[in-house]
Deep mutational scan, measured.
Amino acid sequence: DEDSERELEKLRKNNASKEEIKEVLKRLGFSEDEAKKLAEKAG
């Protein structure tokens, strides 16, 4: 959803580590696997 998109955008701009991105995604309700895949894509 839009909030998670914004959250990811912010992380990308701040050069967050894949680990940080994954944690945020998991907080947003993604499964471990989904979060890992998305973090890879974002990283």
Score class of each variant (00 low, 15 high):
residue 1 D to A: 12
residue 1 D to L: 13
residue 1 D to T: 12
residue 1 D to F: 14
residue 1 D to V: 12
residue 1 D to I: 13
residue 1 D to R: 14
residue 1 D to E: 10
residue 2 E to R: 12
residue 2 E to N: 11
residue 2 E to H: 11
residue 2 E to G: 11
residue 2 E to W: 15
residue 2 E to T: 12
residue 3 D to R: 12
residue 3 D to W: 13
residue 3 D to L: 12
residue 3 D to T: 11
residue 3 D to Y: 12
residue 4 S to H: 13
residue 4 S to P: 13
residue 5 E to P: 05
residue 5 E to D: 10
residue 5 E to S: 11
residue 5 E to T: 10
residue 6 R to Y: 10
residue 6 R to H: 08
residue 6 R to C: 15
residue 6 R to G: 07
residue 6 R to A: 10
residue 6 R to T: 09
residue 6 R to K: 11
residue 6 R to E: 06
residue 6 R to V: 09
residue 6 R to N: 08
residue 7 E to D: 05
residue 7 E to L: 15
residue 7 E to V: 15
residue 7 E to W: 15
residue 7 E to S: 08
residue 8 L to Y: 06
residue 8 L to E: 01
residue 8 L to A: 03
residue 8 L to R: 04
residue 8 L to S: 01
residue 8 L to M: 06
residue 8 L to Q: 02
residue 9 E to T: 09
residue 9 E to V: 08
residue 9 E to N: 10
residue 9 E to Y: 03
residue 9 E to A: 12
residue 9 E to I: 11
residue 10 K to E: 08
residue 10 K to S: 07
residue 10 K to G: 05
residue 10 K to A: 09
residue 10 K to L: 10
residue 10 K to C: 15
residue 11 L to Y: 04
residue 11 L to S: 02
residue 11 L to G: 01
residue 11 L to T: 01
residue 11 L to H: 02
residue 11 L to V: 03
residue 12 R to Y: 13
residue 12 R to N: 03
residue 12 R to M: 10
residue 12 R to K: 07
residue 12 R to C: 15
residue 12 R to Q: 06
residue 12 R to I: 14
residue 12 R to S: 03
residue 12 R to F: 13
residue 12 R to E: 02
residue 13 K to G: 06
residue 13 K to M: 08
residue 13 K to Y: 06
residue 13 K to R: 12
residue 13 K to E: 06
residue 13 K to P: 02
residue 13 K to W: 08
residue 13 K to C: 14
residue 14 N to V: 07
residue 14 N to M: 14
residue 14 N to P: 03
residue 14 N to W: 07
residue 14 N to T: 09
residue 15 N to S: 07
residue 15 N to K: 10
residue 15 N to G: 14
residue 15 N to W: 06
residue 15 N to T: 04
residue 15 N to L: 09
residue 16 A to S: 05
residue 16 A to W: 08
residue 16 A to K: 04
residue 16 A to C: 14
residue 16 A to H: 04
residue 16 A to M: 12
residue 17 S to V: 03
residue 17 S to G: 05
residue 17 S to K: 05
residue 17 S to A: 05
residue 17 S to N: 05
residue 18 K to L: 14
residue 18 K to T: 12
residue 18 K to S: 10
residue 18 K to G: 05
residue 18 K to W: 15
residue 18 K to Y: 14
residue 18 K to E: 12
residue 18 K to H: 08
residue 18 K to Q: 12
residue 19 E to P: 01
residue 19 E to Q: 08
residue 19 E to K: 04
residue 19 E to H: 07
residue 19 E to Y: 03
residue 19 E to I: 04
residue 20 E to T: 08
residue 20 E to P: 00
residue 20 E to M: 11
residue 20 E to S: 05
residue 20 E to I: 07
residue 21 I to N: 00
residue 21 I to F: 06
residue 21 I to H: 01
residue 21 I to K: 00
residue 21 I to S: 01
residue 21 I to G: 00
residue 22 K to A: 12
residue 22 K to N: 06
residue 22 K to Q: 10
residue 22 K to C: 15
residue 22 K to E: 15
residue 22 K to Y: 15
residue 23 E to L: 09
residue 23 E to Y: 00
residue 23 E to S: 07
residue 23 E to I: 05
residue 23 E to C: 15
residue 23 E to F: 01
residue 24 V to H: 11
residue 24 V to G: 03
residue 24 V to F: 15
residue 24 V to A: 14
residue 24 V to C: 13
residue 24 V to R: 09
residue 24 V to Q: 07
residue 25 L to K: 00
residue 25 L to V: 00
residue 25 L to M: 05
residue 25 L to T: 00
residue 25 L to R: 01
residue 25 L to F: 06
residue 25 L to G: 00
residue 26 K to A: 05
residue 26 K to V: 12
residue 26 K to E: 06
residue 26 K to W: 00
residue 26 K to R: 13
residue 26 K to H: 04
residue 27 R to G: 07
residue 27 R to S: 08
residue 27 R to K: 11
residue 27 R to Y: 03
residue 27 R to P: 00
residue 28 L to F: 05
residue 28 L to H: 02
residue 28 L to A: 03
residue 28 L to T: 00
residue 28 L to G: 01
residue 29 G to S: 00
residue 29 G to I: 00
residue 29 G to F: 00
residue 29 G to H: 00
residue 29 G to L: 00
residue 29 G to A: 00
residue 29 G to K: 01
residue 30 F to T: 01
residue 30 F to S: 00
residue 30 F to Q: 01
residue 30 F to G: 00
residue 30 F to N: 01
residue 30 F to Y: 11
residue 30 F to P: 00
residue 31 S to P: 06
residue 31 S to I: 02
residue 31 S to E: 05
residue 31 S to W: 01
residue 31 S to N: 06
residue 31 S to R: 03
residue 31 S to T: 11
residue 31 S to G: 05
residue 31 S to L: 04
residue 32 E to G: 02
residue 32 E to R: 01
residue 32 E to K: 02
residue 32 E to I: 03
residue 32 E to W: 03
residue 33 D to M: 06
residue 33 D to R: 05
residue 33 D to Y: 08
residue 33 D to E: 13
residue 33 D to K: 06
residue 33 D to H: 07
residue 33 D to P: 05
residue 34 E to M: 08
residue 34 E to C: 14
residue 34 E to Y: 06
residue 34 E to F: 06
residue 34 E to H: 04
residue 34 E to W: 06
residue 35 A to R: 01
residue 35 A to K: 00
residue 35 A to C: 09
residue 35 A to H: 02
residue 35 A to P: 02
residue 35 A to G: 02
residue 35 A to L: 05
residue 36 K to M: 14
residue 36 K to R: 13
residue 37 K to L: 13
residue 37 K to P: 03
residue 37 K to A: 12
residue 37 K to T: 10
residue 38 L to C: 14
residue 38 L to D: 02
residue 38 L to G: 02
residue 38 L to T: 04
residue 38 L to P: 02
residue 38 L to M: 11
residue 38 L to V: 06
residue 38 L to R: 05
residue 39 A to G: 02
residue 39 A to S: 09
residue 39 A to D: 02
residue 39 A to M: 13
residue 39 A to R: 03
residue 39 A to K: 01
residue 39 A to P: 01
residue 39 A to F: 07
residue 40 E to H: 07
residue 40 E to F: 07
residue 40 E to T: 06
residue 40 E to S: 08
residue 40 E to P: 02
residue 40 E to D: 11
residue 41 K to A: 13
residue 41 K to E: 12
residue 41 K to P: 08
residue 41 K to W: 15
residue 41 K to I: 12
residue 41 K to H: 11
residue 41 K to R: 12
residue 42 A to S: 10
residue 42 A to P: 08
residue 42 A to M: 15
residue 42 A to L: 15
residue 42 A to F: 15
residue 43 G to T: 13
residue 43 G to W: 15
residue 43 G to P: 10
residue 43 G to Q: 10
residue 43 G to K: 10
residue 43 G to A: 12
